[in-house]
């Protein structure tokens, strides 16, 4: 256990600089975006009202009220999120390959550690989980902050105030990152982490059998996804929704367990340094 926590801490420390860069980019872009979009709205409102004599009501009818929705639907807000997602997907691969391709083959030392080798795998997976969830938590901090900035800039008559939950209800993309209920949160991120396990296992296939391993890893990935999605092709007309959910939960756990088990085998018996 202690070894495992040490490994997680080690993996996170290795990424922390880049992680802070991602956080900084997100904060800067989203705050700047909020200021820009709010100011533009207020400027066009004062131009319309003071220079062209448009009434406030008429301006609202034409432009709509200013709300956090306009901010979240903008590239300022979604761009850094997409960047973070891309960076973490990339790191899901890099977290393994850096150990082989860095200056000194670090994986050699890792595998020699006096601990079960599966701990390395689990530590890397845990790090990815924590890094992803950390960015989700960052959004939960940032959205109220951005709402406050918007309230400073836009006068009350011109804006529609929305809470975080109301904002999530209004915007489908946000519902993927922050689902409406905790059960959905577990489902969405559970599926995400199952996929991380599958990808890790595919990487270990490649690391064990090299060229042939790419094929094996691909087959393994397709097989896993096929098992998980099978009910949608076979039983979709047969199962009631709640039963489908139960079946999918069990299959998801089976696929994740299978990945861990196969990886354990590959790490102890097959992996090449």
């Amino acid at each position: 256990m202690n070894r495992y926590i040490k490994l997680v801490n080690f993996e996170i420390s290795r990424f922390i600089k880049l992680y802070f860069v991602l956080i900084a980019i997100t904060v800067i872009s989203q705050v700047t975006g909020t200021i820009m979009i709010s100011s533009q709205y207020v400027n066009s409102a004062s131009e319309a009202i003071y220079q062209h004599g448009v009434s406030i009501e008429q301006f609202i009818t034409e432009r709509g009220l200013m709300s956090m929705f306009q901010v979240t639907a903008s590239l300022w807000f979604l761009g850094p999120i997409a960047l973070c997602i891309a960076a973490l997907i990339f790191y899901t691969f890099f977290i393994w390959y850096r150990d082989w391709f860095a200056k000194n083959t670090f994986i050699y030392r890792l595998l020699m550690l006096p601990t079960a080798r599966i701990n390395i795998y689990l530590a890397k997976a845990t790090s990815i989980f924590l890094l992803v969830l950390g960015l989700v938590a960052l959004q939960l901090f940032l959205i109220p902050l951005l709402s406050t900035i918007l309230k400073w800039i836009v006068p009350v008559d011109l804006r529609l105030d929305m809470s975080v939950t109301e904002l999530i209800d209004s915007f489908f993309y946000l519902q993927i990152i922050l689902p409406q209920s905790f059960v959905e949160f577990l489902i969405y991120y559970g599926i995400g982490f199952m996929v991380v396990f599958i990808v890790f296992t595919a990487i270990l296939f490649e690391r064990s059998f090299r060229l042939k391993g790419i094929l094996l890893g691909g087959v393994y990935g397709i097989l896993s996804i096929a098992i998980f999605t099978m009910p949608f092709f076979i039983f979709i007309d047969y199962l009631y929704p709640i039963e489908l959910l139960a079946v999918e939960t069990v299959l998801g756990l089976i696929v994740a367990a299978m990945s861990i088990w196969v990886s354990h085998y590959l790490l102890t018996k097959k992996v090449m340094v």
Partner: peptide, 16 residues
């Protein structure tokens, strides 16, 4: 030694 890990874990789980 573990401050990075502990702070990320606590903040994340706490916030969500």
């Amino acid at each position: 030694k573990y401050w990075k890990l502990i702070s990320i874990a606590v903040i994340t789980v706490g916030t969500i």
